[in-house]
């Protein structure tokens, strides 16, 4: 065995150990702040693990959504928790059942993976049909053509999650602006940061969506970066979030799933629901990706901002 191969194995083993210890720390840390930080660290290690497996698309999504956005979401949730709601550290029946279920899912997934015939997966089938898919990136071809059904449902699940979060608003606050108002020192570091970074963030977000046609990237990765840009300008106090009753906001939230559904229904004419005719597949995929990116970006940002907290100036 060469030194390079040995170094590879050593790196992977260390990465696995780091993943497991970050996961354990995220589960066992008290107070919760430490647990959230280790959850973010776990997400970063998981992204590196996906990179090691050659799944760059998943690595991008894990880093952007798993570590970045979910981390901010958890920090926001923690800030809203009552001091009285402090959970007692302990291992009761609920924890035991959760642990058993989690181990069961892990074993089931491992069994399913090992039971796959060799060579595993559908790589050859995807490669054989890539020319007709309208995308040069096999991952995009699967997500928006071969298994568009999953992506459509994912985008609707996100929307349902946002409706759930908004439903937590007080009656009096309904129609107001989501989240708490952020105060920053005018001309301070955060206010400047909120103005310097967004142009570059917008560029990276749009690039990720565009690159998704032929390289790793796509609507979810690009949308998350755009959501982060919005959250940054909101936290820096540069702009305020729109009222949740704003028509344009709601139109932008549903635009992606609506366009996706419309394309799917149009596909009925070509044979079956969500069938993309090979001649128009590329144009249709780009249309879906662009509107989906907009909706994903706004939905994710709104999820992190939270339910409307005050009704001032509701239109």
């Amino acid at each position: 065995m060469t030194a390079v191969a040995l170094a590879d194995i050593a790196f992977d083993l260390i990465l696995c150990a780091l993943l497991l210890s970050a996961a354990l720390a995220a589960l066992s840390r008290q107070p919760l702040f430490g647990a959230v930080i280790f959850f973010i660290v776990y997400g970063v290690f998981a992204a590196i693990a996906w990179l090691r497996l050659g799944a760059t698309d998943v690595a991008l999504a894990e880093a952007a959504i798993g570590a970045g956005l979910t981390g901010v979401l958890l920090l926001g949730a923690m800030a809203r928790l009552d001091a009285a709601a402090h959970t007692e550290p302990g291992f009761g029946l609920a924890e035991a059942l959760t642990a058993i279920a989690a181990v069961g899912v892990t074993l089931g997934l491992g069994w399913a993976f090992l039971a796959l015939p060799e060579p595993g997966g559908l790589q050859q089938a995807v490669a054989a049909n890539l020319a007709q898919s309208g995308s040069e990136n096999p991952v995009t071809a699967v997500l928006l053509n071969f298994r568009a059904w999953d992506t459509l449902l994912e985008s609707i699940v996100l929307l349902a999650a946002l409706i759930g979060v908004w439903a937590l608003a007080d009656d009096a606050a309904w129609g107001g602006r989501p989240g708490l108002r952020h105060h920053t020192r005018p001309g301070g570091v955060l206010a400047s940061f909120g103005r310097v970074l967004p142009p570059m963030g917008l560029l990276v977000g749009v690039y990720l969506v565009w690159a998704g046609a032929s390289q790793p990237g796509g609507a979810f990765q690009g949308g998350t970066v755009l959501a982060a840009v919005w959250l940054l300008v909101a936290m820096a106090g540069v702009v305020r979030a729109p009222h949740v009753s704003a028509t344009w906001l709601r139109a932008a939230l549903v635009a992606g799933p609506v366009v996706f559904l419309a394309v799917g229904l149009a596909g009925v004419a070509a044979g079956a629901f969500l069938t993309l005719p090979p001649d128009h597949a590329k144009a249709l995929i780009v249309t879906i990706e662009v509107t989906l990116t907009l909706s994903i970006a706004i939905t994710l940002a709104a999820l992190v901002l939270g339910p409307p907290e005050n009704a001032e100036q509701a239109p």
Binding site: V189, L190, F193, L197
Partner: peptide, 16 residues
């Protein structure tokens, strides 16, 4: 460059 900007900003915020 991005890491520099982010680290510099967050260091200031944590210190404040």
């Amino acid at each position: 460059a991005f890491a520099l900007i982010a680290a510099g900003t967050s260091a200031q915020l944590v210190a404040r």
